[in-house]
Design a protein around this nucleic acid. Structure first.
Length: 423
RNA sequence: GUGGGUGUAGCUCAGUUGGUUAGAGCGUCGGACUGUGGCUCCGAAGGUCGCGGGUUCGAGCCCCGUCACCCACCCCA
């Protein structure tokens, strides 16, 4: 039998799992403070949720989805991202009746069939937020600020992050611009790579994403959407930036930032780090998607959100030298001198735990010496030594591992004695 | 899908031009200290040298194949 986890997946061993829980807790605390509520959606959806929402021409849909038929011949897909599911759920359950709004956050694994590399897995974790039913630019700023604050909260220094922002326009101004870019690509077809030539038809804006030096050079001269925004988009974008300025959030305008999902309109943004991520540098990103709900047949409902990647956040934290606080593995270790006292050790440990003390004992009949070593490894502050001598007079020995002081304590007083010494 | 790199103990790695029973450090367990930790010393357990073939008197080392992982391209979290 193949005892390896599938390609592109990883077990989260205790050290990593602890960091994971720390990120989750930090996000839950922070996001709640901003008024977001949790939502959990299925790990798989009917395939069209993604094909319609994310867009047929995107990399995600065209080559990265885990799609399969279930036993009822339904086409299902493991979610490659979170937004489509949340919007689908909001529509299904009418979470955003006309005139109202909802602020939600989610977390969990996403799945994309790609060749794994540093900072990229086939199963990877994201935490994200979605704001539904709010069109105003202050919501954009709130979401961006929240993303930045999260990274700050887990200890990634502002100096090692870059916040990029751009506007993708809307149905009023983007189609015309799209035509201009398409024409521009066709005019320069000779100098551009094959892929970009294809993009002229399928998704011209994505030519800005190409890293081929020749294409980068040509696209650097291409007209920018920023200069073709309609009045409304332009005003929206300006207000978002003004709000960021008010809070002193540093950002860079990135007029060629387009991002890989079709549903974005107006504001898009991305947080990149300079260290630790190999060639991947985005640790979080998102944008506005005012047309998505309608794409699913729902009422016009503006929306926006972000997603951030756990694995990449952890890599960035590591690069920044941030350590995750580790809880005590044991306050008290109850040591067994010989087998005659095993039952007493077991019941005393249980009593301590019932009293809320983090207590540990040896289950393997190891020597007293090795029990002490174990106590040391667990950073236990106290060791209760249970031996036949003490037990004969109804007592145990309590050793303070730091001061090395030892004292006799009556068994009935053990819990109180431990508590008072632990403060 | 394409390219490059690496596979030797639980972990990190040595392993000379192919040559006897494949090593070290860390970790684990035991002992020195017959009921007491962090230091030190001693000892033990632990290995299909990724897998399969081939060359050879002899392969961890050479050849072929295969698998896995890593990194990069594409793109994204």
């Amino acid at each position: 039998m193949n005892v390896r986890a599938p390609k592109g997946t990883a077990d989260m061993l205790p050290d990593v799992a602890r960091a994971w829980e720390y990120l989750t807790r930090t996000a839950q605390d922070l996001f709640s403070r901003y008024g977001y509520e949790p939502i959990y959606t299925p790990l798989f959806e009917n395939t069209e949720v993604f094909t319609r929402g994310i867009g047929e021409a995107t990399d995600i849909v065209s080559k990265e989805m885990y799609t399969f038929l279930d036993k009822g011949d339904r086409s299902l897909t493991l979610r490659p991202e979170g937004t489509a599911s949340v919007v689908r759920a909001a529509l299904e359950h009418s979470l955003v009746p006309q005139g109202s709004s909802a602020k939600l956050y989610y977390s969990g694994p996403m799945f994309r069939y790609e060749r794994p590399q540093k900072g990229r897995m086939r199963q990877f974790w994201q935490i994200g937020v979605e704001v539904l039913g709010v069109a105003g630019p202050s919501a954009d700023a709130e979401v961006i600020v929240l993303l930045v604050r999260f990274f700050e909260a887990v200890g990634i220094p502002a100096a090692s992050m870059r916040l990029l922002v751009n506007s993708m326009g809307d149905e009023a101004c983007r189609p015309a611009y799209r035509e201009r870019i398409s024409a521009y690509i066709r005019d320069h077809g000779e100098q551009l790579c094959e892929e970009c030539n294809r993009r002229a038809v399928t998704n011209p804006l994505r030519a800005f994403d190409c890293k081929n030096p020749a294409c980068v050079a040509v696209m650097a001269e291409a007209p920018l959407l920023r200069d073709s925004l309609c009045e409304e988009c332009s005003a929206h974008y300006s207000t978002v930036k003004a709000h960021l300025d008010r809070l002193g959030i540093a950002y860079e305008e990135a007029p060629r930032l387009v991002r890989g999902l079709d549903y974005y309109t107006r504001t898009v943004f991305e947080v990149q780090v300079t260290e630790g991520l190999g060639s991947q540098n985005a640790i979080g990103g998102g944008g506005r998607y005012d047309r998505l709900m309608q794409e699913y047949g729902g009422p016009p409902t503006p929306g926006l959100g972000f997603a951030l990647g756990f694995e990449r956040t952890l890599l960035a934290m590591e690069a920044a030298g941030v350590s995750v606080p580790a809880p005590a593995r044991a306050d008290v270790y109850v040591a067994r001198v010989d087998d005659s006292v095993s039952e007493s050790v077991f019941t005393m440990t249980a009593a301590l735990r019932d009293a809320g003390v983090v207590a540990e004992l040896d289950h393997q009949a190891r020597s007293l010496k090795s029990q002490f070593k174990q106590a040391d490894r667990l950073a236990a502050r106290l060791v209760v030594i249970v031996g036949p001598d003490e037990l004969a007079v109804g007592e145990v020995t309590l050793r303070d591992m730091t001061s090395k002081d030892e004292s006799r304590v009556a068994i009935g007083e053990l819990v109180n004695a431990v508590r008072s010494r632990l403060g």
